[in-house]
């Protein structure tokens, strides 16, 4: 297989299928390492890749791609690669009614925001009593 590093968004799909692809995260970066590969897997990898970054071909050496992580705008925790966010943003911008502001937040802070939207009116009403 061959990997196009300009197209790869650094998601987890290929590493979930193949044990020759390893993924690790360290503070601000996610690294994905592609080791030389049993070519019989290539077709399923091509099919699994959401970005179309994988094609057939031979690689003799391991290569490691490094992706910058996006930090949550509220808590500062890294939660996804910047390219994943761009990829998702591009897809959902085609949907109507979406402001996409939540894409700056990690899942925990999104949950928190959602909880607040339920809780704050309740707290306001009971605070008045």
């Amino acid at each position: 297989m061959k990997i196009d590093e300009k197209v790869c968004i650094g998601c987890r799909a290929c590493s979930a299928i193949s044990s020759s692809i390893s993924i690790s995260e360290e503070s601000d970066v996610r690294s994905i390492t592609f080791h030389p590969h049993d070519e019989s897997m290539t077709d399923s990898l091509i099919e699994a890749c959401p970005a179309g970054a994988i094609s057939s071909g031979l690689t003799a050496e391991s290569i490691t791609l490094i992706f910058r992580m996006k930090r949550c705008s509220v808590c500062g925790e890294p939660f996804a690669t910047e390219r994943e966010i761009e990829h998702v943003a591009a897809r959902i911008s085609q949907m109507q009614d979406f402001q996409k502001r939540w894409l700056d937040l990690c899942p925990e802070c999104r949950r928190d925001g959602q909880r607040r939207s339920h809780a704050v009116p309740c707290i306001r009403i009971r605070g008045r009593r």
Partner: peptide, 16 residues
């Protein structure tokens, strides 16, 4: 495929 993009997309953090 376990790509994890739905976790990034969900506005409520309701997917793990």
């Amino acid at each position: 495929t376990l790509c994890g993009l739905c976790l990034v997309a969900c506005p409520f953090g309701a997917i793990e």
